[in-house]
Design a protein around this nucleic acid. Structure first.
Lengths: 154, 154
DNA sequence: ATACAAGATGTAACTATGTAACACTGATGG
DNA sequence: CCATCAGTGTTACATAGTTACATCTTGTAT
């Protein structure tokens, strides 16, 4: 894979080291996008990521979308379908959890990621009964988190 | 509400009857959009609806989005977040089922609507434990339906 | 070494999806 | 009569995502 030496360092074409990360196989652009999502305290749209990376030389949305596609493949990033936005996975080593759920607070914008095992099992059962083979499962709750709900009733 | 007489007939501003439907409170544009979704054999995007209604005088996306917003409120239509598309509710009198799930076949485009009670209960339990108040729940399975799966292995 | 294949990147143009702002109409209720 | 409100029509705009094409880098086979 291009731009990677050993497990950690990322180099540009001229050999200059431009960044490090804990995941061994990220290219420069993937690393920049992943870093941006990790630093963010909530979901970001692709265009928001683009704006945050202008200083790093990003110019076109495709640079973001291509990196996001790989990061989604790796399981490092999730897409929130109801927001057209992306978040870094909050599980330590998330590659396993290909099915996950999100609770999105519409007041403060924070997102909670969780794994609703019983719900996923029920959906799998339904799928099996119907002969449907799910490739990806999207579960998103839009609503109000505890903090915002309390603030509203005070 | 404008454009409605009694329970059934829909009139334009000049009093001319332009359509009928089984839901008593739809305006002309709402009725046209709902009819289009009902006739379709799968989900439609807002712009696809717009194109199908050009002959009826539709000119701008807002005419579609405004109708869809009301139809979503009434529970007559669902939005598929992972497709940015809309479907007529397939339940007889759907207003009750504010939480529903979809299985979307990525091969043939067909959508199955179902109500996964156990999954919804599990998600409600999780929300209760976390103090999260869900306003809307999105559950969408992307994958392959029975027919398309069988066709692929033949 | 050299040549080739595959993956990654850069850029411009374009399509698709969704909203803001403003004007106008017709019904309803004082 | 007049105010109000939901619905409608229209223009322009904002946001989200893709196609097409060229270049570069790296790994691999010869």
């Amino acid at each position: 894979m291009a731009g990677v030496e050993g497990h950690i360092r990322i180099r540009q074409g001229d050999g200059r080291i431009v960044g490090t990360h804990s995941h061994p196989e990220l290219t420069k652009n993937q690393s920049l996008v992943f870093g941006t999502l990790n630093r963010a305290d909530g979901p970001l749209t692709a265009y928001a990521i683009l704006d945050l990376l202008r200083d790093e030389g990003f110019r076109a949305p495709l640079q973001v979308y291509r990196a996001l596609e790989k990061l989604l493949d790796f399981g490092l990033v999730h897409r929130l379908e109801s927001l057209n936005a992306f978040v870094a996975c909050s599980h330590p080593g998330c590659s396993q959890h290909h099915a996950v759920a999100f609770a999105i607070c519409e007041t403060c914008g924070n997102v909670l990621e969780f794994t609703p095992d019983a719900a996923l099992k029920d959906l799998s059962k339904w799928a099996g009964d119907c002969g449907f083979s799910p490739a990806k499962t999207t579960i998103e709750l839009r609503g109000t988190c505890r903090g915002c709900g309390q603030a509203a009733t005070n």
